[in-house]
Design a binder for these strands. Structure first.
Lengths: 333, 333
DNA sequence: TCGCGAATGGCAAGCGATTGCCAAAAGTTG
DNA sequence: CAACTTTTGGCAATCGCTTGCCATTCGCGA
């Protein structure tokens, strides 16, 4: 590649016989310039192949037309729904989309925010691992929107896993299960807490015994340990922190000669790709995760545009629904 | 968030009693400044919470420390591997990572490149849909590296699907199959061509009949049409453009009462998540796609740093290997 | 015809770094 | 100790665009 000289506002200005400021305004503030002048400038710009330099623009104006999405886990297909939704929404508004993985580390997350600060207009934090305090603290100096996390009134979009957990319990109860064990995900995971809260309170209402085990690595590989621990617990129904873990558990249970759903029932969360064709097909709590990603960006963009007006941050709660497949059945006995 | 005033080189310079240029050099060109001065500057910077503004830096220097990955399809889990690899490699070098989907459109791809041009140091194009001519043309003015595509000596990293296709044919031949049909992917897909080339030439050498059908939508949903067409062809072995399509075909074949692998054999490409636990588990050509993403970024970074030196662009070819599972078996009869 | 506000366009000062060039200081050498 | 090289640091221009402010111009009511 050769470092060609790109044309600038000045080139266009000279060629069009106007001032650079007029060129700038022709692009960014149409009302500020007469429509015939504007048309003329745009034509000249077109002819010269002019494109505004986003960096120069951002440096002066402070608006970068860029946002970043921070995602904790590089290996979980569940997040790809969120990523897709977020990318799509950003791109629809001509917003450049930065993706960054934080490796499940709150420190890393914080560091990314500090590092990218000037390069973006704001951040969407998916399943953030940061503490409430740190989050609120950072929100003072940065535009933040959360996905699948709620912290002190910050704009956030969540899939209602808490409520969804009730559907899981109701389903299991209707199948005659009297005890359930939750195989928990990462300690700092807000969702893991929500899920457990939802499960245990719903179980309480049904007079069902609910235990929590873990944390387990929320991946297929974590399934073996989770399955073994779950079996020891004596419960007849296993609810895994997510589908990856659930699929890993199915595998382990099969290895150990247990039949699902005859001997034990297994439920996951997320309804990831593959949940419908693993064996047995997994009963799981599906949620509009792509929609959540989209909503996260939406909230962020609202916040950015009204940065000064101090508009009310919003909370979006998206409904989850249970997809019953073949991994749940009547309680044994 | 409140728009806090961040400290600049000038603040640090004043506080440290040096010139702004010295501050700048302390960060970016250590040899250019005495080590005790440097230490002092760094301390002051630390104390003031100074962070260089990447935009200002980029505007002047032309280096953005940012790259973009362009991916055609938002829905194919296969690309997740590439994305992960690329993001990881970029992040390891402190490079900001922009992700953009091009919706399978060459025009869109081109437009993204033009749009992001000044915001990045270069582009990694994954499975690019652009024509050879357009690609070469763009490579003159932009830093490009390709993944799973080769065009006129541009730096590229590919998974050797052509060679891998031979393994597929050999495997099928050893099972006694005499005819194979390839269910093709998108027309502009370079990989689709490579796969077909590999299949047909290897088939030729074995005296096996090879036909190509399609194009089909490379998704699970495309599987029904592909399966139906494949059945009509009379071949006993079906090679699908990718695993998504293959999984869709398995589903359709089951619906139509055909047994896999007893009645027909099915092979896919990519070894995506789920290929090992669909039913029957899919025989597929696995490749180090994450590695390919990593290599793509690596090549790009090489190119960027030696932009002027005109160092030799490299071609990386990563080996693919066949993972034989349960969807292939002896030819019927 | 005069006066006045609205519409339009230009001037020039930034935004926050990088970097070519020069000068002063420090080190080397014979 | 003079002459010369090497280090080190500062000056100031520059990257390309935005935007506050001012000067014209124009339309229109009085």
């Amino acid at each position: 590649m050769s470092p060609v000289r790109r044309s600038t506002v000045y080139d266009v200005a000279r060629e069009a016989g106007v001032a650079a400021s007029t060129v700038s305004r022709a692009f960014s503030d149409p009302r500020r310039v007469n429509s015939v002048t504007r048309e003329h400038v745009l034509n000249v710009a077109e002819r010269l192949g002019y494109r505004p330099n986003p960096l120069a623009s951002a440096l002066q104006s402070g608006r970068t037309a860029t946002i970043a999405l921070l995602v904790p886990d590089i290996a979980n297909p569940h997040f790809f729904g969120t990523i897709r939704g977020a990318e799509g929404r950003a791109s629809a508004s001509g917003i450049t989309f930065i993706l960054s993985y934080t490796e499940e580390s709150a420190d890393n997350e914080r560091e990314q925010i500090l590092r990218l600060d000037r390069s973006v207009d704001g951040f969407v934090l998916a399943s953030s691992r940061m503490s409430d305090a740190t989050t609120v603290e950072l929100a003072r100096e940065h535009n933040l929107a959360l996905v699948n996390r709620q912290v002190g009134g910050l704009p956030s979009a969540i899939v209602d896993n808490g409520g969804g957990s009730r559907q899981i319990i109701d389903h299991l109860a209707s199948l005659g299960h009297r005890s359930v064990v939750y195989l928990s995900g990462p300690e700092q995971s807000w969702q893991a807490k929500e899920r457990w809260k939802g499960l245990s309170s719903a179980a309480g209402r049904c007079g069902m015994a609910a235990t929590r085990l873990g944390p387990f690595s929320p991946r297929v590989a974590g399934g073996a340990a989770a399955a073994d621990a779950a079996l020891v617990s004596g419960a007849t129904a296993f609810v895994a922190h997510n589908d990856l873990l659930a699929i890993g558990m199915l595998r382990r249970l099969a290895e150990r000669g247990l039949r699902v759903p005859q001997d034990r029932s297994v439920v996951g969360y997320d309804d990831i790709f593959g949940a419908d064709f693993c064996v047995p097909a997994l009963t799981t709590l599906a949620g509009p995760h792509e929609e959540a990603g989209r909503a996260g960006v939406e909230l962020l963009l609202n916040r950015v545009s009204r940065a000064t007006a101090g508009e009310s941050p919003r909370q979006v709660v998206l409904p989850a629904h249970l997809v019953v497949r073949d991994s749940t059945g009547p309680a044994p006995d």
